[in-house]
Amino acid sequence: MLIIDNLKATISGKNILKGISLKVKPGEIHAIMGPNGSGKSTLAAVLAGREFVEVTEGSITYLGKDLLEMSPEDRAKEGIFLGFQYPIEIPGVSMVNFMKTAVNEHRKYKGLDPLSASDFLKMMREKKEMVEIDSKLANRSVNEGFSGGEKKKNEIFQMAMLEPKLAILDETDSGLDIDALRIVANGVNKIKRPDNAFIVITHYQRLLDYIIPDVVHVLYDGRIVKTAGKELAMELEEKGYDWIKKEVENHILA
């Protein structure tokens, strides 16, 4: 589904990603962990198409297409969803209008007619229930005045509405209390199907108690330095990142 090959990227001339290779197949959940500043969010930004990151080398193939050639909106319509670490507040744009526009853009792309107002509202209602989001949130402006937890739940709600093939959740767990964390994780588990995939970027293992990854990668200094099964997350929780750093340094010295 997704093949990242030797991806290198810079922000304002500074090397952030220094050669990342990663393969994601349908039905898989990949966790990307790593200390602060290792390049996790930059990787998410590249996948979603943010312009401030400049790809200098390597390639990303998504469903057989060159992802780097696609606009952010086309990536979304091809099924990529980014759950933002810091969702943006957009005063004056209602959640209903926002989601209606987005859903209908997706439908147009697939050659489908726009949803009728009643079908759309029905869909909103179902998805709200599915991800346990407070239905009042949907009547407000996009993220405006939402608490940290509400913003993250709103990301999951949008993901449920857009039914992506590949969802990238960028530190969706940061700043969440345990109840919100459970709601977010439940949302992911309900949306998960054999034909879609998730990349869960997280600093802590906590979220992975609820979302069980198939593969765990450790990103450090712009490279994936370790890849293993879900037990790696447990190990990181126990020992922290220092032993990884040491391993990497020893490896470089050797």
Partner: peptide
């Protein structure tokens, strides 16, 4: 940032 947020949901830049 707001523009990108909307784009990342499939809404084209003009819209």
């Amino acid at each position: 940032d707001a523009l990108f947020y909307l784009q990342s949901r499939g809404i084209n830049k003009r819209e």
